[in-house]
């Protein structure tokens, strides 16, 4: 059997409303030398104006921005789905937006990001489900697992809203169940 060098190439994170604090805890651990792109879907009201990207840019060592259509993913950058658009990843590792109908009552939907990211990156993808009150993300995380990617779920007991982590754990045999504090350190070692 031939072997080849391998490392992860992208991280996707799904979190529902109220996930601002959780994201901050995870992402502020990553230092300026971190070299994977991080792509985030947070369920946000259509009218929220996309505050999250600004918020993270102010707190994190890595640059954070709202995702743009056809944009090429750059290492060490945090991308946030704009409110009221789905965010997808193309095989050529560019981002795409769409206004397709909501999925799991959500637009952006975590499943849409995760499923397309799994297609684009296969096993070189790591998917993370954090706090939330929705089933969104479970299907997508399953797809990441099936494509050989790494799956991580926040320990439901430590989640502000445990419904989404629980749903993910019920749907997928995940690789790691971690406390919020641990997730950042885990990711920074990828």
């Amino acid at each position: 059997m031939t072997t080849r060098p391998f490392r992860h190439e992208c991280i996707v994170i799904g979190v529902s409303a109220g996930g601002m604090e959780a994201l901050q805890k995870v992402l502020t651990v990553l230092d300026a030398g971190f070299s994977l792109p991080v792509v985030i879907v947070q369920h946000e009201a259509a009218t929220s104006g996309g505050f999250l990207a600004h918020f993270l840019a102010g707190k994190c060592a890595l640059p954070a921005k709202q995702a743009e259509d056809k944009e090429k993913l750059v290492p060490g950058t945090i991308y946030v789905a704009p409110p009221d658009y789905h965010l997808l990843i193309e095989n050529d590792r560019t981002l795409a937006l769409s206004i397709d109908a909501p999925v799991n009552y959500a637009r952006p939907s975590i499943d849409v990001l995760f499923e397309t990211a799994a297609d684009a990156y296969g096993r070189a993808l790591a998917g993370v489900i954090l706090t939330g009150a929705s089933v969104d993300g479970s299907r997508g995380l399953k797809k990441i697992k099936d494509a050989g990617g790494l799956t991580i779920v926040q320990d439901p007991q430590t989640a502000e809203a445990s419904y989404m982590p629980r749903a993910a754990l019920a749907a997928v045999e995940v690789d790691y169940v971690l406390k919020l504090e641990e997730i950042g350190h885990f990711l920074s070692a990828l």
Binding site: T2, T3, R4, P5, F6, R7, R123, A147, A189
Partner: peptide, 15 residues
């Protein structure tokens, strides 16, 4: 982290 792993069985399917 860079590891050494076998060829990805999914990549042909994806292609």
């Amino acid at each position: 982290m860079i590891q050494s792993v076998p060829d990805d069985p999914h990549s042909e399917q994806k292609q």
